[in-house]
Design a protein around this nucleic acid. Structure first.
Length: 262
DNA sequence: CTGCCCCTGTAA
DNA sequence: TTACAGGGGCAG
């Protein structure tokens, strides 16, 4: 479920629960979520440490502790939230941290694809689209070298960190760009429009997601985000009434309007 | 680039 | 029963 806006909402919740707290003990239920390290190693590294800060980097949540950093990636179905009673955690819990206020931070993940690792995210992570470094100039410079379709290019975390399948499609629709266009063939004027669309859509979605995000159950399938194209295969475009299409791109579904995206 | 994999849930 | 799911890493 999570792209940048949802991760930001979860990050705020985690920050509120963890700020200034000490981790009494860590419990990791699924061995593979922290590979290649063992659950025992990770738990030992966390126990007794105080939390200094929590920040988001793209879709990663970085929990800064005394002398260590823990990176959480929610992947498809992960979620973090605080529970007053650790014993009440759901059976889909991948891991949980018992805190010195008696509460627990739960890493709930039904599909179990999420990741927990000591240290910072591996590999290069591009500029976060809500940060100062994400300027139209830098965006256009990067795109000039892009040899893949713009939608696939946008989803590469080394370029725009945090953009995923939904918001990449939504931003391209807002900017009126065909997702199949090669990144390097787009004019600067269109890249500027795309840059603005990305920032605008994410900014609104972050606030909306944070409001919608309450507790376990998280973003209950509510209508907290109204998609222009995502998931609307076969339905009329809200702008031009042409039918939205779905095509495979990079192994996932891309939704777009053949009428207003060229 | 494509396809497969990690998992579980849900909808057609 | 099959297809698909908002993520990402890997092999070919």
């Amino acid at each position: 479920m999570p792209e940048l806006p949802e991760v930001e909402a979860v990050c705020r919740v985690a920050r509120r629960a963890l700020a200034g707290r000490r981790i009494v003990s860590a419990h990791i239920r699924r061995r593979r979520i922290c590979l290649p390290q063992t659950p025992r190693q990770v738990a030992a590294a966390l126990a007794g440490k105080r939390c200094l800060a929590v920040e988001r980097l793209g879709k990663n949540i970085l929990i800064h502790l005394e002398g260590a950093t823990l990176t959480v990636h929610l992947r498809m179905t992960g979620n973090l939230y605080a529970l007053a009673h650790p014993g009440l955690r759901p059976r889909t819990t991948s891991a949980h941290l018992v805190l010195d206020d008696g509460r627990a931070l739960v890493f709930d993940d039904p599909r179990g694809l999420g990741i927990l690792r000591l240290g910072r995210p591996p590999g290069p992570v591009g500029p976060d689209p809500l940060s100062r470094e994400f300027t139209p100039q830098r965006f256009a410079e990067m795109a000039r070298a892009g040899r893949s379709p713009i939608k696939v290019w946008l989803m590469d975390q080394r370029r725009v960190a945090g953009l995923g399948n939904i918001y990449a499609a939504e931003a391209l629709h807002r900017a009126g760009i065909d997702p199949r266009r090669l990144a390097s063939t787009l004019r600067v004027s269109r890249l500027n429009r795309l840059h603005a669309a990305i920032v605008a859509i994410l900014a609104v979605a972050v606030e909306s997601a944070s409001r919608a995000y309450r507790r376990p159950g998280g973003f209950a399938d509510g209508e907290w985000f109204t998609a222009a194209v995502y998931g609307r295969d076969g339905l009329p475009c809200r702008r031009c009434r042409r039918l939205i299409r779905r095509i495979p791109q990079g192994g996932r579904s891309t939704y777009f309007c053949p009428g207003c995206q060229r």
